[in-house]
Design a binder for these strands. Structure first.
Lengths: 252, 252
DNA sequence: TCAAAAGTGTTTTGTGTACACCCATGC
DNA sequence: GCATGGGTGTACACAAAACACTTTTGA
């Protein structure tokens, strides 16, 4: 934005300071971030929710979010929430969409920037159950506080689109995993069964994995090979969620 | 729609009221929308820009944007800008991403929600040139005020992804058009040449068009057939930009 | 020896891509 | 009759999808 149109439509050059003064009255919209924190456990895609503390939504759960502070970036706010709630620092985070309907929040005008995040549910040291914070099966969720059901649906759809071409589901898994485990993650996210041979072929083509030449243990059946994501794809978390083209472009 | 919540609104419980009070100091982030308004003319993708009126960015152009008012939705703000600047009301609009770095705006903390829009450049009745408002070839743009170059790039990437599967480029064209004109729009957006026969085959497969059984006129060569987008795809503008799956899903 | 899952290939179908010739029109 | 773009089909390569049997392990 540059600009408010002056009444007489003249081009007025002004300093930023002046502009700030003249628009102080607009500075009364709050900005929050809401994080859809996905985890995977027991062949099931989960999301981290907390009991809403607003009476308007008594009994309903909501996503984890907080107001953005004036001196913090949107991503920083999301990482702050993730750290607070899960104790994790290096997580995958992607901005999805901003929800800003006038009446979406009963406390006043709050627009919220939605992020989703993928974490290894086994691996965090979070304070689940404190404040009725806990994991919920995504499929079973029917209502949430605010417009959070819509936000969840939007983020889930984005996740489904992303996993096809981007090596990100690995954030949900431990370091070492079998192809069966990987397939089950995909099936849980897509909520659809996949053909085993075709799945393995497709994953092999992506060339994302290293064969660790180890076998899983303590399974009551033939053990599977263990794989890990190749180092080059273990990128640091995405700081500024980029647009990704649907094909063809370079990889860092 | 309710607007700003009054201080003594009964619906606000202690908790909500307390939350608002305790966070009043956070209510000083401004929210803006910025619109990347695309047009198509002379085989070239254009974007509508205005000379920045901030001294910090003297001489640079910027996107069209404005602060969001406390009582207006994000989309409403975008439509307001579009109406103001182009006179058009029923335009295609899609939310893309929100940019919120602390220091992205010299006037203070302003986070901005980026939208892109597609309009028929011939058809609007806009006040171009007033305030140095005008169309610029997207390819030629090297710098913009603020982070607007990044916003433009992000929106362009989104547009490129969308046009493959969604019948939206038609918003850039007049009602009737030939397949050559359509192909040129795709080439301009994708910035790549396309094979004519393959292009026609692909468009035919989409089944988006009606053959009007008319020919273009006044061309110094064999006239092409005129087509129009099928009525069922002439959807009203997208109010709340949805997530679209990348494949496989049903078509209305 | 049984239960459970691992591992593996071939065929068919559809899609993407490369490529060349004749046709209709205005000038 | 020539310049300009309109209109069309085929062959190949590759990816997606359907589909079944043998192997390995622990209990």
């Amino acid at each position: 934005m540059n600009t408010v149109i002056s009444k007489n439509n003249k081009l007025i050059t002004k300093t930023a300071a002046f502009e700030k003064e003249s628009h102080l009255s607009y500075f009364n919209i709050a900005v929050s971030v809401d994080c859809v924190i996905f985890g995977y456990d027991n062949d099931d895609l989960k999301v981290l929710l907390i009991k809403s503390d607003l009476e308007e939504y008594a009994g309903l759960y909501s996503l984890l979010g907080d107001l953005v502070r004036p001196d913090e970036d949107l991503e920083s706010a999301s990482y702050r929430i993730l750290k607070q709630r899960t104790g994790l620092e290096n997580v995958y985070l992607e901005q999805v969409q901003t929800f800003g309907e006038v009446d979406r929040h009963p406390s006043g005008r709050v627009i919220t920037v939605a992020y989703y995040s993928l974490i290894d549910i086994q691996h965090h040291d979070l304070q689940v159950n404190e404040n009725e914070l806990g994991w919920h099966s995504v499929k079973s969720i029917e209502r949430l506080a605010f417009d959070h059901k819509q936000i969840l649906d939007t983020c889930l759809q984005r996740l489904r689109n992303r996993i096809v071409n981007e090596p990100i589901v690995f954030h949900l898994l431990p370091e070492k995993f079998t192809l069966r485990e990987l397939q089950k993650v995909y099936e849980a996210i897509l909520d659809a069964p996949l053909d085993r041979r075709n799945f393995r072929k497709k994953i092999a083509m992506k060339d994302w994995l290293t064969d660790l030449r180890e076998l899983e243990t303590d399974k009551p059946h033939r053990p599977g090979r263990l794989y890990a994501l190749k180092q080059e794809y273990k990128s640091p978390p995405v700081i500024h969620s980029p647009q990704r083209a649907s094909g063809n472009q370079s990889r860092r």
